[in-house]
Design a protein around this nucleic acid. Sequence first.
DNA 1: GCAAGCCTGACC
DNA 2: GGTCAGGCTTGC
Length: 285
Amino acid sequence: MPELPEVETVRRGLEARALGRMIASVEVRHPGAITGAPEDFRRSLRGRRIEKVDRKGKAIAVELTGPARLPARYLLIRLGMTGQVTVNPSDAPIELHTHVRLRLDDGKEELRFRDPRRFGRMRSCTCEEKDAIFRKLGPDARQVTKAEFLAAARGRKGAIKSWLMNQSLLAGLGNIYADEALYAARIHPLAQPGRISEVGLQVLYKAVRKVLDQAVNLQGTSFRDYIDIEGRQGNFASRLRVYQRDGEPCRRCKTKIRRLVIAGRSSHFCPHCQPRPRRVARMRG
DNA sequence: GCAAGCCTGACC
DNA sequence: GGTCAGGCTTGC
């Protein structure tokens, strides 16, 4: 599942393989993968050059300039759950669920957006629209300062697990790295952010940064569908300590990892290393 | 039937 | 405003 480390790996791949290249033509094979009208999408991207590849949280913004005197345009990419962006020879066989093709330069190579689950989206937008979307996201989880992190937790009820995954508070964490960061910080996923001690939150802050940095260095986690721009898998899966390990022994204390559903999302934790707080958020009903 | 990110909308 | 349920989608 693409979270910050996977999206950052794709961003770097785009930088390496697509920066400075021109989008020669655009084919939308599935309009559902695009926000807005496909014809607008095609027209607004064609003939432009890739100038910069930015990221905030799990969103990628590809800055496009030209033709002359037109304002910059942005190609926003959200990979959703199973989205893939790859560079391919244009004559390579088209895999099932390939929704968008962007021919580059002389047309011999192309960027492909493939997404079996179709939760991902591509969108062409103006600088203002891009900024508005980025503003709604909280600070990027690799850039956030300790002060911002502590301030965002102040007074919050609900489960820390949901808090970590709330993109408007902190952008970049999904289910995998939220579980891994809580395990590293020895915090129960149901603990309330506002009730965690200052020291506890500082430990969590460091754990988030550390887990994300390690995962970025290993090009992310390929649990199922995730691949980078060259089609390579990530290497972080072997480092997972709790995610999808329910029933298996904790690597620290051998206690069986348990699974709990919080806000409709499965959460994996060690009951011994991450003791349940005295008072936790009650589930509704 | 479950998994997931993200959006919408209901509820307090 | 915060919080959470529901729905989208499809391969396992």
